[in-house]
């Protein structure tokens, strides 16, 4: 295998283009992260390193609001990810182990459609739906909406994992006197676990970060962290927002990284 001939790095402009793309993607985040450590109350003038805005998030005048919003966000994210992962696991089992059934392709499309539909459309549709059936908006409506749109995100890593598991393992379990339930819990489920954990973390982070849908279906007075940040920004951009944002980004990076490694892990 000749590396030099096919090495993408040998194309002219490759390195420059890559650096440009990365800059466009990450420079804004870098600015936010750096200025979250600014000692000044200004968001543009650098006056030295300080952790005062991080302290402000936890103890400042707006801290009670943010703490409540964060609590809501985590409760919703944990619940939504748990329910969505359970549903996605069952869906993946049916899709991949169910053999060829009628409407299989349609089912697969329906599961992954939410990934393709613009989020604003889903948001408006969900709002109209709740209004039509007379469901009062509040934490519960946010939770239901989150469960719905988290399912495809949880489904993808789980089904990818499951596709790599040959069905002879379950046959071997049945052959060795396991019931169908035992074959599922003792053999298939442990083998699927990395995909399930990966799907759970992905669903969790998607729920935690969601703004558009949440903003539409939340009731008055109920805030999650993203909507609380948005509300605070509307009253003027302060460095404490940068501190919260930086913490959220850091948390997301950790979760996605864990999800990646767990998903990749063999056995």
């Amino acid at each position: 295998m000749s590396r030099a001939r096919f090495d993408v790095k040998s194309y002219p402009g490759f390195v420059q283009l890559t650096v440009l793309c990365l800059l466009i993607l990450y420079l804004p985040l870098m600015v936010v992260a750096v200025y979250s450590f600014n000692a000044s109350a200004s968001i543009v003038n650098w006056e030295g390193f300080s952790l005062r805005w991080y302290a402000d998030v936890f103890t400042g005048p707006e801290s009670a609001k943010f703490k409540l919003a964060a609590r809501n966000s985590f409760i919703i994210a944990i619940t939504a990810a748990t329910v969505a992962t359970a549903i996605a696991t069952l869906a993946a089992t049916a899709m991949i182990r169910g053999g060829r059934f009628r409407l299989r392709v349609l089912s697969l499309g329906l599961i992954s459609l939410p990934l393709m539909v613009p989020e604003i459309v889903t948001a408006v549709a969900t709002l109209i739906f709740f209004n039509t059936i007379g469901f009062e908006r509040g934490t519960l409506t946010i939770l239901l909406a989150h469960i719905a749109f988290c399912i495809p995100f949880a489904y993808l890593p789980i089904s990818a994992r499951m596709q790599g598991i040959e069905d002879t393992y379950e046959q071997a379990a049945l052959d060795l006197y396991a019931t169908k339930r035992q074959a599922f819990t003792r053999v298939l489920l442990p083998l699927m676990m990395p995909g399930i954990v990966s799907g759970y973390l992905l669903a969790f982070i998607i729920s935690l970060d969601d703004f558009i849908i949440t903003n539409f279906v939340k009731g008055a007075g109920v805030e999650t962290l993203p909507t609380a940040i948005f509300g605070a920004v509307k009253q003027g951009l302060k460095p404490n927002i940068m501190a919260i944002s930086t913490m959220l980004v850091g948390f997301s990076i950790i979760m996605v990284t864990v999800s990646y490694f767990v998903g990749k892990k063999d056995n």
Binding site: E166, A172, L174, D175, L176, T179, L191
Partner: peptide, 20 residues
């Protein structure tokens, strides 16, 4: 009878040993 009710056992072509 389902496979788990038959007192026969199989050695599979790819062994199908439980990897976990």
């Amino acid at each position: 009878l389902p496979p788990n009710k038959r007192p026969v056992n199989t050695v599979f072509q790819n062994y199908a040993l439980f990897p976990h």
